[in-house]
Amino acid sequence: MTERRRRRITQAIAFCLLGSAGLSVLLTLAIILYFMTAQGSRAVSWEFLTEFPRKGMTEGGIYPAIVGSFCLATGAIVISFPLAVSSAIWLSEYARGSLWVRVIRVGVNTLAGVPSIVFGLLGLAFFVGVLKLGVSVLAGALTLALLILPIIIRASEEALRAVPTSFREGALALGATQWQTVRTIVLPAALPGILTGAILGVSRAVGETAPIMFTAAAFYMARLPRSPFDKVMALPYHVFVMATENPNYWRTKDLQFGTTLVLLALVLSLNLGVVVWRTGLRRRKRW
């Protein structure tokens, strides 16, 4: 066997191994999606989505959990979005390269690495305890807002940086102030990218359990929340309690799969939307 041939064969084997590693990632995803859809679709129906749980949560639907998750995610994004976008504007437009920017960036990266259960502890000690918000939608939304802050900041900053410098130079040359430049030229150009970041933040807030366990979530509520100071049911927490803490858990397998499927479908459709939208944006970019 010639040296050259031997090297060819080694390469073929190596590439096969790398390829199979890549395929195993696809396969894992397929297995998870298959089991969740195959078993979950049996339980999901219009009634399942629009009814309250009945008979000690062994029958009925998940309507209050859907509403609760919606409240929490909306609250979180309303609090987080203005803070995150301002941070991103500051990082990318006003103070590029300064020491303070480096400090903030380390802060953002560190915040992104804090485990979600630690956010839950903060929420319990600060929002529930010190601020006396109680176990409530508001406390949960505030906790989730801090958790998704780094996600939206990073996405927004990337979107702002992708706007060409010539846009800013054009505006400044016409006599616009820095704020006018940012507001009328840079922000509109970066808006789609910023919004995809916001959607990613929402999808994260919908799926997180640990931060709302001690700050917002209720095992069961017979009515919908009436004020921001009410406890709520939430989809991810509902999945958790139905599968582990409900004494009748072995009778409700279908409901558990159904709830998980609804949560998964919600989160994945948000994320898929972002992926598709982003590809579209790249293709018809004007610069």
Partner: peptide
């Protein structure tokens, strides 16, 4: 692109869904 999207989707699945998959399957 397909592989990168798959990884992104895998990353976006909530941890409670992974937990439930582990528990039930």
């Amino acid at each position: 692109d397909v592989f990168k999207s798959a990884i992104e989707i895998l990353a976006s699945i909530p941890s409670v869904v992974y937990g439930f998959f582990g528990l039930a399957v």
